[in-house]
């Protein structure tokens, strides 16, 4: 990323994205449904599988 103006444009665009996403994030954190028993475990298992799969891919390349 050599072009400083492009870097600034990218930073400004992501800044706008943060501005857009912030109310949505706050809404989900305050009003989103809470996890029941076993819900986090059910979500963590596939995510750990993704990490293991990426490690496998790294070892293959």
């Amino acid at each position: 990323m050599d072009n400083i103006w492009l870097q600034i444009a990218m930073a400004v665009t992501i800044g706008m994205m943060i501005f857009f996403l912030f109310p949505r994030a706050m809404h989900w954190m305050k009003n989103g449904p809470k996890a029941g028993q076993g819900d986090w475990m059910a979500a963590v298992i596939p995510l750990v599988a993704v990490v293991a799969f990426v490690i496998l891919l790294v070892m293959m390349v």
């Binding site: 992501i14 996403l21 994030a25 989900w28 954190m29 989103g32 996890a35 819900d39 059910a42």
Partner: peptide, 25 residues
Amino acid sequence: RDFSFMGGFVFAGMLVMMVAIVANI
């Protein structure tokens, strides 16, 4: 399963990542 409970975690995580991306630019 209903993974809607992950909404807060996902969107908050996105905000953190975006701040990190801007810093790393």
